[in-house]
């Protein structure tokens, strides 16, 4: 119960940060770094895939309602939640998975954590940018925005992790 309330509180916090802070950053047209995937990275490894997707979908949809982005975040977050178990299986050892590890720079180490975050953000941003542009007629622009936003979001997540969790540790 406590764990559930803790996750609920963190999800609300991430939503508020996204709505009130990150969405107002606007570094330029087409640039939209995101922070909330960090919440999904930190979910326990044994968190089932289907609830993970449902959580991603509802989180994304609530975010979309606040930001007026239709269902862009919902689609991208659902896709990211779908591939997350496969990526975690690749990055984590059997022991780590059996111990229900919560991925963080502290538990995985910075390199492994950022590497895992990179692949998940890559999936998220691919669908986000693809559905934003909604065309295959501009592959250059899609590639640029996809990779650019992935690195920007990764930088943002790294910074936040560095600022807060490091001190905690």
């Amino acid at each position: 119960m406590i764990s559930f309330l803790s996750y609920l509180g963190r999800s609300i916090l991430f939503l508020l940060i996204e709505w009130l802070l990150i969405a107002r950053l606007e570094p330029g047209p087409g640039w939209a770094p995101i922070l909330y995937p960090m919440f999904f990275f930190s979910l326990p490894v044994q968190f089932s895939a289907a609830p993970r997707m449902l959580l991603g979908f509802s989180f994304g949809l609530i975010l979309d309602l606040g930001l007026g982005t239709g269902g862009l975040h919902a689609a991208a977050t659902t896709a990211m939640a779908f591939v997350q178990p496969f990526i975690l299986r690749y990055f984590l050892s059997v022991d780590e998975r059996e111990n229900n590890l919560k991925p963080s720079p502290k538990s995985l180490g910075w390199l492994r954590y950022l590497w895992m975050a990179f692949w998940l953000l890559l999936v998220h941003q691919f669908f986000f940018q693809l559905y934003s542009l909604f065309t295959l007629g501009a592959p250059g622009l899609l590639l640029f925005r996809w990779l650019g936003n992935t690195f920007l979001s990764l930088l943002l997540i790294g910074l936040v992790q560095g600022l807060f969790y490091k001190k905690k540790a």
């Binding site: 997707m53 449902l54 991603g56 979908f57 994304g60 949809l61 979309d64 007026g68 982005t69 239709g70 269902g71 862009l72 919902a74 689609a75 659902t78 896709a79 779908f82 559905y131 909604f134």
Partner: peptide
Amino acid sequence: FLLLHGISLVFVVRH
């Protein structure tokens, strides 16, 4: 996944 993704896409297109 396909169901949730499909619903999201419908929202995107409708929006």
